[in-house]
Design a protein around this nucleic acid. Structure first.
Lengths: 206, 206
DNA sequence: GTCTATAATCTGATAGAC
DNA sequence: GTCTATCAGATTATAGAC
């Protein structure tokens, strides 16, 4: 049917626009995305973009969705690895941490869009948000399968890992100053998870 | 001398403008600061602000400087505490971590300006940057006095602490989901610092 | 579906009268 | 030092011809 072909063509153009948006955003920063530049890049007037997206925010939304789909895909083979019986827990956790770290630092702008709240004019649509939630669930199921189950411990893990990536991105972009510390951090977390009964801040009781 | 009084008056107005800028920025976000709004807030036309600051960036710079002065002041009595012989290391470290955490989370916008790189159009002046450097040196001297000396360990500490504050600010603003984990994180770091000889990523050798 | 034209707003910054 | 007037530019978005 020609209906299908038209829809496919339309989707291809949308994809092309989103790809160009990623390029621009890597050059000029996430907030610096301008529809005029975007139109130039794909060879059409900025106004024509409105034939494909109802607003600038919808373009961010498509990028957000695409980013989380990439995140989920990136984690798929991690899950496969975790399901193998012969790999020990520490190995799996180290690998998982490195993969997460690498996913984040390899594309700082994507990291900013996906994991930080820095574009005030943009809030993900329910549909895109659902994609994000699904990716998180995949991740926490993976960790739960290894033994990281209670919320507090999970929160500690996420804080340490995002802390490392944040520092790497903002203080040593392209370097390895914090990536070198990933294994050390993971081992530290593993040890802690084994010893620590759940404790609240001791200083609060003083 | 009337020269002095004039200078004092001028400085007072500058301070007033900066204070109003902090207010606005807490309401509308760091990037959302508009000179027209700022003029309204202090009761003058936006154009008149240029009698006090040469550019918008100079206003950010004054805020940056003020923020790091506040940070240094905030840490002064931590240094005093650390100099007392009767306090044990773990106590000092826990207190230091909590103070840092509290300083950051109590004013997210200030945190953004001081510790994240999120305003593209602003780079601190050499003078203001020097204030920041001084505050960092104060902090690392404090940690060095307790035993955290090598750069890698210091980096690990900063990653964990900023990770906790980041998560708290962006995922549970006003709550305590990650602040509850500060002691646990500090104890974990202390234990790790005692046991770990300096090691690089083990998985790199595989 | 793409274009031209343009609306409606916002921005930071400057010139010059008072 | 404060004002009025204005520049010079950006932004997102809409209307209507083709």
């Amino acid at each position: 049917m020609s209906r299908d072909r038209r829809a496919a063509r339309r989707q291809a153009t949308r994809d092309e626009i989103v790809a160009a948006a990623w390029e621009l955003v890597r050059e000029q920063g996430l907030a610096g995305l301008a529809l005029r530049d975007l139109g130039d890049r794909v060879g059409m007037k900025a106004q024509s973009l409105y034939s494909y997206f109802a607003s600038k925010s919808e373009i961010y939304d498509a990028m957000f969705r695409e980013g989380y789909l990439a995140f989920a895909a990136h984690n798929d083979d991690l899950v496969a690895l975790a399901d193998r019986v012969d790999a020990d827990t520490a190995t799996i956790l180290r690998r998982t941490a490195h993969r997460f770290f690498e996913f984040c630092t390899s594309d700082p702008v994507r990291y900013q869009l996906l994991f930080q709240r820095t574009i005030p004019e943009f809030t993900p649509s329910p549909e895109s948000y659902a994609v994000a939630v699904q990716a998180y669930e995949q991740m926490s199921e993976l960790l739960a399968g290894i033994g990281v189950r209670d919320q507090a411990t999970l929160d500690l893990w996420s804080a340490v890992l995002t802390g490392l990536t944040d520092q790497q991105i903002s203080n040593d972009p392209g370097g390895a100053r914090w990536s070198r510390l990933v294994d050390r951090a993971v081992d530290m977390l593993i040890t802690e998870s084994h010893t620590a009964a759940t404790t609240d801040n001791e200083s609060e009781k003083a």
